[in-house]
Simulated assay, not measured.
Amino acid sequence: MPSPAATVETDSLRQPILGSRRPSNYFWAIAVSIGGVGFLLAGLSSYLQVNLLPFSEPTRLAFLPQGLVMGLYGIAAILLASYLWFVISLDVGGGYNAFDRASQKATIFRWGFPGKNRRVEITYPLSDIQAVRVDIKEGLNPKRALYLKVKGRGDVPLTRVGQPLPLAELESQGAELARFLAVPLEGL
Rank of each mutant, 00 (worst) to 15 (best):
Q104S: 14
R153H: 13
L53D: 03
L18V: 15
W28K: 03
K137A: 15
G67H: 01
A31N: 10
K105N: 13
Q66F: 06
A31S: 13
E9I: 14
M70H: 07
E138G: 09
S45F: 01
D128E: 12
A81W: 01
L84D: 06
P54A: 03
S24V: 11
A81L: 06
L126K: 04
L185V: 09
V87K: 03
R60H: 10
D135P: 06
G36V: 00
L148K: 02
E9S: 15
E57F: 12
V120K: 15
R160P: 00
T159D: 00
L90R: 12
G115D: 05
L140N: 15
P2S: 12
L146V: 02
S20Q: 03
L44I: 12
T10W: 08
L79I: 12
P58N: 11
Q49Y: 08
Q104C: 08
V150W: 02
G67Y: 00
S45Q: 02
L72V: 08
P166E: 12
K149L: 14
T59K: 08
F180V: 06
P58H: 07
L170F: 04
G43N: 02
A145E: 05
I129G: 00
V183G: 08
G95P: 02
M1A: 10
G43A: 05
G93H: 04
A102R: 15
G43R: 00
Y96W: 14
S45H: 02
P114T: 11
A182E: 15
S45L: 01
A182C: 05
D91H: 11
P157W: 02
V8G: 03
L165S: 11
R144H: 11
A98M: 04
D11L: 12
L53N: 06
L146A: 00
L126D: 03
L167F: 09
I17E: 01
K137V: 15
I122R: 15
L72R: 03
L44M: 09
